[in-house]
């Protein structure tokens, strides 16, 4: 009986870890499509914060994540509510509501060659455009972004990335 119990327990344990592994693999696959390499630009010069936000939004449009009206809404939100989308020193997270024109969830990354003043006195070097389809479905996405932004070393690498490949490498560990 004891042996049987142990075997059963081991079996359950093996199954659980297998399920965990399958789930982890599925998450990796699910997250892969969220940051398209075409949605990354580095060494970018911009005229002002609005230009930066529009370029960041354009990357989402070009990769089929959002419509033009969503980009307009992103800019409008900052005009109305101020530069509250600065989520960390020198990092902005321009976004709007799902109903403003999100087609698929995903992100875009724009790294400026020099930091700019962002709708006030704050400076921004890195923009992460966010397109969320609904409140629940983008929790994963936010978590991945938070993982990078909350890690000082990875955030530094991201702010100073000189190519799309470098940006992808920073995210790859969390995606």
């Amino acid at each position: 009986m004891e042996i049987l119990a142990r075997i059963t327990a081991e079996n359950i344990g093996a199954k659980a870890s297998q399920q965990g592994r399958i789930r982890a693999e599925k998450e990796v696959i699910a997250l892969k499509g969220l940051l398209d390499s075409k949605a990354i630009q580095t060494n970018i010069q911009v005229n002002d914060w609005e230009d930066a936000v529009r370029r960041c939004g354009k990357l989402l449009v070009e990769t089929g994540k959002v419509t033009e009206s969503y980009v307009q809404a992103m800019v409008q939100n900052i005009h109305e509510l101020g530069p509250y989308m600065i989520i960390a020193p020198e990092v902005a997270l321009p976004h709007s509501r799902p109903e403003d024109g999100v087609r698929k969830k995903g992100i875009s990354v724009l790294v400026l060659d020099e930091s700019i003043t962002f709708a006030g006195e704050k400076r921004v070097k890195l923009l992460i455009g966010l397109a969320a389809t609904d409140k629940d479905s983008h929790m994963n996405l936010l978590q991945q972004v938070a993982e990078v932004i909350g890690d000082e070393e990875r955030l530094k690498r991201l702010k100073n990335a000189g190519s799309a490949a470098e940006v992808e490498a920073v995210f790859e560990h969390s995606f």
């Binding site: 509250y84 989308m85 997270l93 976004h95 936010l142």
Partner: peptide
């Protein structure tokens, strides 16, 4: 946050 959707959710986490 501005819309109670993006950054406030991230901060909540």
């Amino acid at each position: 946050c501005g819309m109670g959707f993006g950054s406030s959710m991230m901060l909540k986490m």
